[in-house]
Amino acid sequence: MEYKLTFNDFNKSLKRNKLMALKCGDCEKITVPPKMVCSECASTNLEIIQLEGKGKIATFTTNFVAAEGRECEAPYIIVMVELDEGPWIMGNLIDIAPKKVSMDLIGKRVVMGVKVFPGDKYSAGDMARPLFSFE
C-alpha cells in the first residue's frame, strides 16, 4: 500500500513554509508529522491538508550543549507548539534572546516560519524545521 505523504514530500513543502498533514476521513483527527495511518484510529482513509502553522507554546528550553557538528547553533530555543488544529510539533523559537526566556513563554501565541538544517553525515540529507516567532 502506498505511503500517502512521505517525509520527502512533507519536507519539500515545509521548505516552502507549508505545513502539511493528514486528515482522517473516518475520525477527523489530524496526523502530523505524516504516518502510514491515522494516529488516532489507524485508518488509511486519509486526505492531505495544509495547516495554518499557528498555535501556542506548550513548553520550551534553551539548550546550551548541542550535538557534534551543531555546536555553533548553541544556545538556541526549542519549543513544542500546540497547533490550533490540535497536534503538537517541535521547532525553534526566534524573536527573543535565548538567555532571556522564562516560564512566561508557555501559552504565548506563535506563527511558523522555516529554517533548513543542512544535515550531517548521519542524517541522509537536509531537513526543514519549523522556526516560530511571536504572532
Binding site: N11, F117, A128
Partner: peptide, 19 residues
Amino acid sequence: RYEFPSGITFPAVFAMLAH
C-alpha cells in the same frame, strides 16, 4: 526526521518536560 532538525538532545527533552 521530524525532531532532530530542531536540535533536540536528550537533556533538552527532559528540560521541556520539566517546564
